[in-house]
């Protein structure tokens, strides 16, 4: 195997995805012929207008959606479904089981993944310490703030000890300050753990602050328009956020995004109801 291949954690090749059949009213072309290599140990941000297919790409990478065409490889394994031993997901919100405590949530996640019973409590404790939530193990999600819930979701993902984390707007529902603090913490965690992270965000500042590379999407059907590199070692300090380079890269991102956002807004007059009615229901356990 070549050097390039072994350095690649996830490789996406010519992936296109459409929802619904071609003749249906709710047919949506979400992704168009996208290719991308995620390097081992990097944090790659996906940014783009809302509805451009970022979540779709992330779900395809993690095997939660089978793409219409194209292939995804994780290491040397082709992706055909969820890969709980390689990939952990973190969603925007409410992905903790509300009827279980934080500790029970983590134990349950590990039991799904197949972690031996004897190891679970230890791992849960370590992951909770890593995110600073060890005192809240016995709390229910509803008893925590939004920011703490997302830390807990992060802890649950960390306890699975996968090499790859896929995060879909994990801080998207939080206020600006909480989001900045969590961003700094994530940067610290990342510098210690050598994990590969793909991180969807709609915040330009968050992208520049966290990412080693930022992939900018075009309007739907989404594809990657350009990738910019942010050359700053982790853990990143808040001083980076006030530096001239930070602002310059943020502006560069804004320029790239601007036209795509306008295009995307022009599309959004189209009705999307059929899809929204469906999405609130859990379909058959496929």
């Amino acid at each position: 195997m070549t050097q390039a291949a072994t350095n690649t954690a996830i490789s996406v090749r010519n992936v296109s995805h459409s929802f619904g059949e071609a003749d249906e009213a709710r047919h949506v072309k979400a992704l168009l012929d996208t290719s991308l290599d995620v390097t081992r140990g990097e944090l790659l941000c996906l940014i783009g207008p809302s509805g451009c297919g970022k979540s779709t790409l992330l779900n395809v990478m993690g095997g939660l959606i089978a793409p219409t065409t194209g292939t995804v490889m994780v290491g040397d394994k082709p992706v055909h479904g969820p890969m709980p031993n390689d990939i952990a997901f973190i969603f925007q919100e409410n992905a903790l089981f509300p009827w279980s405590t934080i500790h029970e949530n983590m134990i349950l996640g590990m039991s799904f993944q197949g972690v031996p019973k004897a190891e679970r409590a230890d791992r849960a404790q370590r992951a909770l310490e890593a995110v600073g939530l060890d005192e809240f193990a016995g709390h229910y999600p509803s008893q925590l703030s939004g920011g703490m819930r997302q830390r807990a979701a992060l802890a649950r993902a960390l306890s699975l000890e996968t090499n790859i984390l896929l995060m879909d707007e994990p801080f998207g529902a939080l206020d600006e300050q909480t989001r900045m603090v969590l961003g700094e913490d994530l940067s610290v965690l990342l510098s210690r753990s050598k994990k590969t992270i793909v991180f969807v965000t709609h915040s330009l500042g968050e992208a520049v602050f966290l990412a080693d590379r930022v992939a900018v999407f075009s309007a739907r059907p989404g594809t990657i328009k350009e990738i910019i590199t942010v050359d700053e070692p982790h853990p990143r300090k808040s001083a980076f956020m006030t530096s001239a380079r930070f602002h310059q890269q943020r502006d560069q991102l804004y320029d790239l995004l601007h036209d795509e956002i306008r295009k995307s807004m022009a599309q959004s007059g189209k009705p999307k109801r059929a899809y929204e009615d469906q999405s609130s229901r859990a379909g058959p356990a496929a």
Binding site: P84, F91, A95, F112, L160
Partner: peptide
């Protein structure tokens, strides 16, 4: 919740 559970295996 369903998606999260499936992603964890």
């Amino acid at each position: 919740l369903v998606t999260a559970a499936k992603s964890m295996g």
